[in-house]
């Protein structure tokens, strides 16, 4: 799909697509590509800026959220700041979601938190990486607010009746993350070791229990 007949031009069409990705053929995708080329041609942004942005987004992963969790587990003062004002507290670790507000909800024995965006698919990507496609699915968005226990059970989260479930509906201006419970027996673990226990789904709330093993039984904690 790459072609070199226009190698004398400086608009390098051959870099529009990566070789291992199919060219988009839908009308809506072409709208996006056409808009991109118009904005590049008008100098609203450069290819270098685009490359830097894509690289940054590809580099974001749930490990960022896991760092916040491990810090909160090992530093009670940080945890208090994180729960009090997430937007400000995460800047201490070099993260920034502003202008969106960022709120962290803590799980405990009586309460389980889970996040959704019913209107679209708002997600703290800088902290969790790309959202999974199920998070963006109509089914998850529709049903989580109506029957959270049923949806959570489908994810393997079994909650006893005395555990209260709170569903947090994200918006364009407000993002959430769940602070999962620290596994028992890890009280003296280092921050780095704890960080490796934290999974993406536990930060969304579609997983409740984290396991105190250094090697995740399901494979790598960050797929």
């Amino acid at each position: 799909m790459s072609h070199d007949h226009d190698h004398n031009h400086d608009h390098d069409h051959d870099r529009t697509f990566q070789p291992d990705h199919p060219e988009p053929t839908s009308e809506a995708a072409r709208v996006g590509l056409a808009l991109r080329e118009l904005l590049l041609e008008a100098g609203h942004y450069t290819r270098a800026e685009e490359a830097a942005m894509i690289s940054r987004m590809q580099g974001a992963s749930p490990d960022n959220g896991a760092r916040l969790v491990a810090r909160a587990w090992t530093d009670p003062a940080f945890k208090a700041r994180l729960l009090d004002n997430g937007s400000d507290a995460i800047t201490e670790l070099g993260f920034d979601l502003r202008p969106a507000e960022f709120t962290v909800m803590e799980n405990d024995d009586q309460e389980h938190n889970v996040i959704v965006c019913t209107l679209c698919s708002c997600y703290p990507r800088a902290l969790l990486g790309m959202s999974p496609s199920w998070y963006k699915s109509r089914s998850y968005r529709s049903r989580l607010v109506r029957e959270p226990r049923t949806v959570l059970a489908e994810f393997g989260v079994e909650l006893s009746d005395d555990v209260h479930v709170r569903v947090h509906d994200s918006t364009a201006e407000l993002r959430y993350m769940v602070l999962p419970q620290q596994p028992a027996g890890t009280e003296d673990w280092s921050e780095d070791r704890l960080r490796a226990l934290v999974t993406r789904d536990s930060l969304i709330g579609t997983q409740r229990t984290l396991t105190a093993t250094d090697t995740d039984a399901d494979g790598a904690p960050f797929p």
Binding site: T16, F17, L33, E50, M57, Q58
Partner: peptide, 17 residues
């Protein structure tokens, strides 16, 4: 969980930029 196609990254970057 689907992989993100290259044009999707480009659209994503365009929105952010």
């Amino acid at each position: 969980e689907h992989d993100t196609a290259w044009w999707e990254w480009q659209v994503d970057a365009m929105v952010r930029l």
